[in-house]
Amino acid sequence: MSKSKVAIIGSGNIGTDLMIKVMRTSQHLEMGAMVGIDSASDGLARAAKFGFATTAEGVEGLIGLPDFDDIEIVFDATSAKAHVANAAALEPYGKRLIDLTPAAIGPYVIPAVNIDEHIDAPNVNMVTCGGQATIPIVAAVARVVPVAYGEIVASISSKSAGPGTRANIDEFTETTSGAIVQVGGAKRGKAIIILNPAEPPLIMRDTVYALVEGGSRSLEELTAEITESVEKMVGDVAAYVPGYRLKQKVQVQEIPADQPVETLLASAEDARPTHQVSVFLEVEGAAHYLPAYAGNLDIMTSAALQMAERIAASKEDAK
């Protein structure tokens, strides 16, 4: 059974971690080429050492590689701006693009929630690391009760945030907020990202808040139903991100009458939610490239790999 060849554009932290995952853990994929713009980057050096085709000439360099025709799937781990140009340059060649930047040209994919919906899309977007960690939980709550408002707080160690993330923090918050609604199923979404420089570096933490309409259930019933759904979802994500876990029991509480939550809703006419759900998560990385604190890196590359595996598997089925 032949594996699908992939190229990775972006030889920074994310691209390099992804390369290692393709080599070590993939069933249906194999490395074709590593593409950067800095010939001195660690990622390109490693790829060359492993014997993969490399280019420091960006997407044009990729298109010019002798084995370019064999590449089926291209991961883009550059930046939102660069992805727009890369996607345009690759458009005539019919490659499948998996976008790990917040450019969001294609539909959002969170594997545990909607991996089957976009298998045939020419370009899919993997949202953000914070989105990959939290949106499954928003969706897990939303399949039990209507979520009027979903909010996520992603705290990552400063060391795990590369220059691309740092220079484009608005794209993180805006893309994640959009996906909380579109994939998570909340009526309105808000995303917050915090960089913490503590030493030793802190493992990625994510907190999900959902303001929900509990209906006629008692607090106990509501807590039990939401907890069951969240725990199942955590298991589904942990299947492809082993370091993903629930850090505390799911908290459900009635929203105090004096809490002005109406200012958080999508529309002033929306019904006032009755309960607040709080879910505390931790994401420990597999330490393929950066150390274990960089769960943000791991969950992003693991999700992208998952998507590529599914695309490759469906191609094999079709053969």
């Binding site: 707080v153 705290s155 503590a198 505390q248």
Partner: peptide
């Protein structure tokens, strides 16, 4: 070593 914005960790600490 919490920094500004990490109010979510207050409940985490209590739990």
């Amino acid at each position: 070593g919490l920094v500004g914005g990490q109010e979510d960790m207050i409940v985490d600490i209590c739990l």
